[in-house]
Design a protein around this nucleic acid. Structure first.
Length: 566
RNA sequence: GCCCUCGUAGCUCAGUGGAUAGAGCAACUGAUUCCUAAUCAGUAGGUCGCAGGUUCGAUUCCUGUCGAGGGUACCA
């Protein structure tokens, strides 16, 4: 099935061709802002008119006169300076939304999504939230649209940090602490190493030597490295399990190390890379990058993350032949990725690489969440706090629910509030993590959406979902029912748009609009109450079912769960 | 210096080349014998930083300017 907007756009296209506008592609139809104007509108007459030197209003009139007969469209009107307003048949719309179906626009296409990518030996903190949550939403939306998705967690598991860590382990390790909390101990050791090595160059020299041993695959060093990696991954998996995230691949930096020497040699040989001040760089000619060559080998011979990124691109293109590769990494890496992508193009790699950058997460007062600057909040602690808060609220609001269910609901609601706090904001804005705001449960929160879902479910529970035949959605209605019908029909086009623009907040905003339309429906359109005619009851019941399903699917695409009761 | 991003209601934030710029919080008014009031209805709040330009139409695109943040080869 295609989206409603796409269906109508195709009709406008036909009208344009019949009206004599050959060889033009019309602009897409969009929902009207105000239902009194119609359901969808086409603004294409302005552009068509210009191409023929006619008045926009006349062009719109020509489209109207040549508009093809179609069961979907009950009215075509010209309004204002040249708007073409379309009214969609309720029954047709009802049939279209009977199942919440994907438009399948991704069929046959592959997208690689690089997200989360934490560093080994460090605890995941609130600063890792954005890449992980935004990336996972993009992952889910693309999958739903029919894309083959390769979710790849490019963990930081190699390089100089390990030399430091190994020296710190040799010098200052606390075995008991490690047994108790491996990642906590590794993190302590790493921070200690950083401090000590700043003051003592001989320690730094040892760290460098250990890094070399690792790169040379010294068995003992490698075993220690593996131990640290395993411990870290085990903890990451706890976080991912809690967040409902799974990756198709976890190909960290270490996976590409064998390719680095040959790659640099090859680039030198082909004249793509050159020696510069003792280092090896790929000079870039693209606009704005002439002063920013990509450094691929340091003067001491070590490789850099740009080198690994190039090797990673080679591997991804060769292995999956993706139509698109998304890198969900913060805004500070913009220049880096521009350079990497330019270098890849210079190497001859053809691929659609997109750096899906996002703004910084800050705390009130302006401190950036970053392990380097020391201002963090452990992600698992944050999730625990959110779940505890949710538990307290549900215990207050719904004391009749069994303890076990309240615990389960609290976990779903808790993670939902944290995820939604992030996903409901424009990824590209800096966001300030404020506990009061993140844990709010009124309008603009995940709980608001989940509450709308729960209310609908209470109707289904009481009325029996089986009683709702899917083919009797309210037709030719006004008010809250019509508003909901119009809205639920938009889910596929909204998901498509959110995925293509890599902005999950578009979906969040849409779902909020749906939830906001549930309130009035709930207040004004009784379903199971006395005096409701059987056919109205059946129609409303089926609408409730479709709307609940829309919320469930939409929230699910953001990685947010729903519960039937809260 | 150069590059990137941001500036929208008192606060936190959405949104868009189109018709009257939207939510939440805070403020005020009202609704609960009724399918979940974690709700709903309403009032109030705006020169969309400033100045030009392009356009039938600009808050949206372009240029300049002021303010804020980030980046700018041997960390990732």
């Amino acid at each position: 099935m295609s989206t409603v907007a796409a269906h109508l756009t195709a009709l406008v296209q036909q009208a344009a061709e019949r009206a004599g506008f050959e060889g033009v592609t019309v602009d897409g139809c969009v929902p009207t802002k105000d239902a009194s104007l119609g359901d969808y509108q086409s603004n294409t007459a302005f552009r068509l008119a210009k191409s023929k030197g006619m008045k926009p209003r006349d062009a719109a009139e020509a489209l109207r006169a040549n508009f093809p007969e179609d069961p979907a469209v009950t009215g075509v009107e010209v309004a204002g300076p040249g708007f073409l307003n379309l009214s969609v048949d309720d029954a047709w719309l009802a049939a279209a939304v009977r199942t919440v179906a994907s438009p399948g626009v991704g069929a046959g296409k592959t997208v690689v999504i690089d997200y989360s990518s934490p560093n080994i030996a460090k605890r995941m903190h609130i600063g890792h939230l954005r890449s992980t949550i935004i990336g996972n939403a993009l992952d889910r939306m693309h999958r739903w649209l029919g894309y083959r998705v390769i979710a790849d967690n490019h963990v930081g598991d190699w390089g100089t940090p390990f030399g430091k860590l190994i020296v710190a382990w040799q010098e200052w390790r606390d075995e008991a602490a490690y047994a108790e909390d491996p990642v906590g101990e590794l993190q302590r050791l790493y921070q200690l190493a950083d401090e000590k090595m700043e003051a003592d160059p001989s320690l730094l020299e040892r760290a460098r030597a250990e890094t070399v041993k690792l790169q040379q695959r010294d068995p003992e060093t490698l075993a220690l490295w593996q131990r640290f990696v395993d411990a870290s991954m085990a903890e990451f998996d706890v976080v991912y399990g809690r967040l409902g995230i799974r990756f198709d691949e976890v190909l960290g930096e270490s996976a590409y190390q064998d390719r680095l020497d040959p790659l640099v040699a090859e680039l030198l040989e082909r004249g793509i890379a050159v020696e510069s001040q003792g280092a090896i760089v790929v000079p870039l000619e693209e606009k704005g990058l002439t002063d920013h060559p990509l450094l691929i080998q340091k003067a001491d011979g070590a490789k850099l993350y740009g080198t690994t990124d190039l090797a990673t691109i080679e591997h991804r293109l060769a292995t999956w032949a993706p139509t698109r590769v998304l890198y969900v990494v913060d805004t500070r890496q913009q220049l880096h990725f521009r350079c990497v992508f330019a270098a890849a193009r210079k190497m001859g790699s053809s691929g659609d690489f997109v750096h899906v950058w996002f703004g910084m997460l800050k705390f009130p007062g302006g401190a950036v969440a970053s392990s380097r600057k020391g201002v963090t909040a452990n992600l698992l602690d944050v999730l625990d706090t959110a779940a505890e808060r949710a538990y307290a609220v549900i215990t207050e609001k719904s004391p009749e629910l069994p303890e076990e269910e309240r615990r389960a609901v609290a976990e779903v609601v808790g993670t939902a509030t944290i995820k939604y706090f992030d996903l409901s904001q424009n990824p590209q804005s800096d966001i300030t993590f404020d506990w009061d705001r993140a844990l709010a449960h009124d309008g603009g929160s995940a709980v608001y959406l989940q509450y709308a879902y729960a209310r609908l479910h209470s109707i289904l529970r009481a009325g029996g979902a089986a009683e709702a035949p899917p083919d009797v959605l309210p037709a030719h209605t006004e008010g809250p029912e019509k508003a909901l019908l119009r809205l639920v029909a938009r889910l596929p086009e909204v998901v498509q748009s959110a995925a293509e623009t890599c902005k999950p907040n578009l979906l969040a905003e849409y779902l909020e609009t749906v939830a906001r339309a549930v309130g009035p429906f709930y207040e004004h359109c009784p379903v199971l109450k006395d005096g409701v005619a059987p056919e109205v009851r059946a129609a409303r019941l089926s609408l409730v079912s479709v709307v609940a399903n829309t919320l469930e699917v939409g929230l699910g695409l953001l990685g947010i769960g729903v519960v039937p009761r809260l």
